[in-house]
Computed example of a mutant assay.
Amino acid sequence: MARSRQSRIGRQPSLLRIKMIPSLTVVIGSMITALPIITDYPILPPLGLLVLLAWRLIRPSYWPVWAGFPFGLIDDIFSGQPFGSAAFLWSVIFILLETVDRKAVRRDYWQDWLIASIAMIIVLISGMLIVDFQSNLLRVDLLVPQILISILLYPFVARLIGAIDNWRVAS
């Protein structure tokens, strides 16, 4: 008994899949940083931020400028940073990205990587200074491994988000 398959031509993807997948991937990225990895220094990259930047740079008009705030609050819950620090910093990054998008005519892959790298450096250093400005001002060098891993991981995350985005909008 053969089952007939409906043609996928002309079908639209699920509205739930289109709307929920980007947000869900950012939340999962933020949750991964809550894994119990014990080190003396910060080494795990901010995966929620990496995923958020990848979505924002791949689909610039998908989220409004204020979207960094709620995602930052969710990240604050899982990261252990002072509540509101990621919400503030991610909002600043979204505002800066909006400014860059208005001034730039077109960006390529390398420029996106540079923009994401600068955004991650700003967020990581600012987050460390928010925790304790006095004692962390001279210890910014502790973040160098985390910054390098984050910068080198961005192309992989962007590629993964691109594949998820293709699946998300495919019929």
Rank of each mutant, 00 (worst) to 15 (best):
A2L: 13
A2R: 13
R8M: 14
R8D: 15
R8N: 15
R11G: 07
R11K: 13
Q12S: 15
P13T: 05
P13R: 02
S14T: 09
S14V: 09
R17Y: 08
I18S: 12
S23H: 12
L24R: 00
V26K: 00
V26T: 04
L35H: 05
L35Y: 09
I37F: 08
I38C: 06
P42Q: 03
P45N: 01
P46A: 11
L47A: 01
L47P: 00
L49T: 05
L50S: 05
V51N: 02
L53T: 00
S61G: 13
W63C: 04
W66D: 10
W66Q: 12
A67Q: 09
P70W: 01
P70R: 05
D75G: 10
D76I: 00
F78C: 06
S79P: 01
Q81I: 06
V92D: 01
V92K: 03
I93K: 01
F94P: 00
F94M: 04
I95K: 04
I95Q: 09
T99Q: 11
T99K: 09
A104N: 10
Y109C: 08
W110N: 15
W110H: 13
A116I: 05
A116E: 02
S117L: 00
L124F: 06
I125K: 02
G127R: 01
I130K: 05
F133N: 12
S135R: 14
N136D: 08
N136K: 05
L137M: 14
L138N: 15
R139H: 15
D141H: 12
L143P: 03
P145Q: 07
L148K: 06
L160C: 12
A163S: 12
V169D: 10
S171W: 10
